[in-house]
């Protein structure tokens, strides 16, 4: 029974994930695409929960959904509703064909790897304890084994913040710079 339930939840989440991803890529209005991405992120959080990554799931919702997507929506609202009449056109004639071919190739290769090369490796997940994926376990890992990653990530965030401020600032000379450029 529990297995069946897990399968149902998984299928539902997977389906939502793929559908929202396709929606992101296909809507012509960027606002709708951003909203579809929020749905994508939520379904991914569900999948993380199924994989016993509770902290990561929470982080996904908070950081991605709460911060990143809000930023996206603010910018889209700021820039106005500029949606393309023909979102899929433009570019060289071989672009569409090449893109589908490359994407399909990658997909096929992954399936080949999973099916033929990986053998039965992917069918035997290790046994895990109760504290797997808990905040306590991750926190300990961050501050002991992966301290450098932790520190570097925080510096990256700092740099990004500074960059964002610089890019978004109003310099007084901008109009003349525009006229000269």
């Amino acid at each position: 029974m529990a297995n069946f339930l897990v399968w149902v939840v998984w299928l539902f989440a997977a389906f939502a994930c793929l559908a929202s991803a396709l929606a992101v890529v296909s809507f012509s209005n960027p606002f709708y695409s951003a909203l579809a991405l929020i749905g994508n992120l939520a379904s991914l959080a569900v999948l993380y929960l199924l994989l016993s990554g509770e902290f990561v799931a929470a982080g996904q919702v908070l950081v991605y959904g709460g911060a990143v997507m809000v930023m996206f929506l603010f910018v889209i609202a700021y820039l106005g509703d500029r949606h393309d009449e023909s979102p899929w056109s433009g570019g060289p004639s071989w672009q569409v064909f090449g893109a589908i071919l490359a994407g399909g190739a990658i997909l096929a290769e992954v399936c080949v790897v999973v099916g033929l090369k990986a053998g039965g490796l992917l069918s035997k997940p290790k046994h895990i304890g109760r504290s797997f994926g808990s905040p306590e376990a991750l926190g300990r890992a961050f501050l002991t084994d992966h301290l450098l990653a932790f520190e570097v990530t925080s510096i990256v965030l700092l740099v990004a913040a500074v960059g964002g401020v610089v890019l978004g600032s109003h310099a007084r000379q901008e109009p003349e710079a525009d006229a000269r450029a």
Partner: peptide, 27 residues
């Protein structure tokens, strides 16, 4: 529940969708 390979396939599908979006949209 599903074996890990299903997650891998799903990840591949998501990746492909994202790649198509990068290559085919202009906005």
């Amino acid at each position: 529940g599903p074996d890990i390979q299903w997650y891998v396939v799903l990840s591949a599908l998501l990746f492909t969708t994202g790649a198509l979006g990068v290559m085919l949209r202009r906005n």
